[in-house]
Design a protein around this nucleic acid. Structure first.
Lengths: 243, 243
DNA sequence: GTGACTTTGTGCATCGGTTCACAAAGGGAT
DNA sequence: ATCCCTTTGTGAACCGATGCACAAAGTCAC
């Protein structure tokens, strides 16, 4: 299947121009941590803290100081040497960089247990995001009101996406339906998808897919848990080495 | 705070012995992909496929062939050159490596919308995992039956963990309660935690914490989405470079 | 048994990300 | 204005992960 490509989290061809000062190509790892910093900073702003050092912010966000400084340096030079970062200002800069100064219309497809939970989860749709539509294929739930929104039939997908300006879609459908819905969503012009279904989605590489997979996380935990158990009973020097 | 350490996903001191053949230290990146391979293999087994090449399995799992082969080579030499991998056998080997041959008792703490969804989500508790307890602080929901389980008051946390042999805890509490519950869970001897609350948990570094954070995923999508928009209106050569 | 063909397993170059360590840059006291 | 102290921003070494490319190892046909 040469037409489609497997979803990658990174970009195939980011502009690799060696810009002199403000290289706009922010490393993916950094982008993934910016929301963490933002959350910590918001907490500080609420508690009335005006200024913060890289070291303090780093521990609040659960990372190391040097990493935080390097991350922030990718956005620009927003600190004052000898003092630290001004909290309000940094909140604004990170918000702007993440695109949270505009607001994003999100559609949730699949209103089962999980979809319902997401729709109701007020905290996760924080500043910048707004649940604009709920869709489902089951005639039983179509027409219901969940979190103040009317559930629309999946047939209306394309119409709803266009009319309500949806640019991010959350997939909470059963695994079997996910790829088909995904295809339609992509055809409707959406290029950002958050996928909760336990399948590997196949999309053109202009589309960004992020995956949240509960079962995988559990399996990773189980791996480490088992290893700890092995360690205890076997001891580190009793490694079996069954060659 | 020198006593506790921020949760890292990796191990501080994995056995770094240069073992000759079967190095038991499997790279973290590999571990994270094994569940993906396992899922693809299970699908193939169901469809009656007996044997599969690295290239086919790789595309099914959404990775590149060389990576898959290197990943599998960390577990041992389970393929046959010129033929491929026997599906059933590989399923068993990966399951064993991930610790899915035993079953793990999981407790879910916090039975709000999300906790309820997780409890009911039959698919996610796949082979190897079993929801053994539901806990909550709200007297309103304590005593309810959800997914066939009685919701227990959080006061019973330590007792329930011991009595039901819980070794993995899923935190689905409000952010404000998460750290306190986490401390109690850790004190009760649990060393594997899956955290859905939007906070950075502080735990001793013998404890493995994995985080699932919907809001962060959305923000990452927004970042890329904004960048695409900038690209279109600005054009790649109109980079502002506001030095 | 031999040769052609297929596919694994891995050495090696490369790349992105992390961490260290320090020079540069500011603030504040005297 | 000068000196000392604090903290940022970053060059450079390091480390793990990725991907290429190929030799080794097996199957199958005859």
């Amino acid at each position: 299947m040469p037409g489609t490509r497997i979803a990658r989290t990174t970009w195939s061809s980011v502009s690799r121009r060696p810009s002199p000062t403000r290289d706009r190509g922010i490393p993916e790892a950094t982008v993934a941590r910016l929301p963490l910093y933002l959350r910590a900073l918001n907490g500080m702003a609420e508690r009335g803290i005006a200024t913060v050092s890289s070291e303090d912010l780093a521990t609040a966000a659960g990372v190391n100081g040097a990493k935080l400084r390097k991350d922030l340096s990718h956005l620009g030079s927003y600190g004052t040497r000898g003092v630290g970062y001004e909290v309000e200002y940094l909140v604004y800069q990170i918000s702007r960089e993440l695109g949270l100064t505009q607001d994003w219309a999100v559609a949730i497809v699949g209103v089962g247990n999980l979809g319902r939970a997401l729709a109701n989860y007020g905290g996760f749709v924080s500043r910048g995001f707004r649940v604009a539509a709920l869709l489902d294929a089951d005639p039983e739930v179509v027409g219901d009101t969940i979190a103040g929104l009317n559930v629309v039939h999946i047939d209306e997908l394309e119409t709803v996406i266009k009319r309500r300006g949806v640019s991010i879609v959350v997939l909470a459908t059963p695994a079997a339906a996910a790829q088909a819905v995904c295809d339609r969503v992509v055809n409707a012009g959406v290029t950002s998808i958050l996928n909760f279904a336990p399948v590997v989605l196949s999309v053109p590489d202009t589309v960004e897919v992020r995956k949240v997979d509960l079962s995988i996380e559990l399996q990773i935990l189980a791996f480490h848990e088992q290893r700890k158990a092995d360690r205890e009973s076997g001891g580190p020097l009793m490694a079996v080495d069954s060659q």
